[in-house]
C-alpha cells in the first residue's frame, strides 16, 4: 500500500495505491487522520485501488465520521466500478460524495 500526500491551498489530496483490506486499512487510517484538522477538505484518490475489503470500506466510513466531526469534507475520486457497486449494495456509498476525476473532486470540495 502506497500513500502519497499532496497539499494545495485548501485541499489535501491523498493518493492510495494497492488493495485495502484488514492488513492495510489501519495504516491508511492512521496516516490520513494525522491530516484531519478543523474544516479539512480531503480528497481520497482511489484510482489505483483495485480492491477494498469490508475492513477497507469501514476505514473509509470511519474517516468520513472523523472528518465530519471536525466539520470538514471528504470526497472520493476514481472509485473502481466494482468497489462502488459493493459500496452501493452494502449502504456505504450513501455517505460519500464520489467523483470520476481529480478536477471534479476538487470542484466538489470547493462547492458550498
Amino acid at each position: 500500500m502506497d500513500i502519497a500526500i499532496s497539499k494545495t491551498a485548501e485541499i489535501t489530496v491523498v493518493k492510495l495505491e494497492g488493495d485495502i483490506d484488514a492488513s492495510s486499512a489501519l495504516g491508511v487510517q492512521e496516516k490520513v487522520l494525522t491530516l484531519v484538522e478543523q474544516g479539512s477538505k480531503i480528497l481520497l484518490d482511489l484510482t489505483l485501488v483495485p480492491y477494498m475489503s469490508s475492513a477497507g470500506l469501514r476505514m473509509l466510513l470511519s474517516l468520513y465520521r472523523h472528518v465530519s466531526a471536525k466539520e470538514g469534507k471528504l470526497v472520493l475520486v476514481g472509485v473502481a466500478e466494482e468497489i462502488k457497486d459493493t459500496m452501493e449494495v452494502t449502504g456505504f456509498l450513501s455517505f460519500f460524495t464520489t467523483c470520476d476525476t481529480l478536477d471534479s473532486g476538487i470542484v466538489a470540495l470547493n462547492s458550498a
Binding site: S53, S54, L57, T86, V89, T90, G91, F92
Partner: peptide, 15 residues
Amino acid sequence: AATGKLGMQVDEVKA
C-alpha cells in the same frame, strides 16, 4: 447476498 462472495452479507441485509 450479491456480496456473499465478499462476506459482506451482513451489511447488505442491514442496508
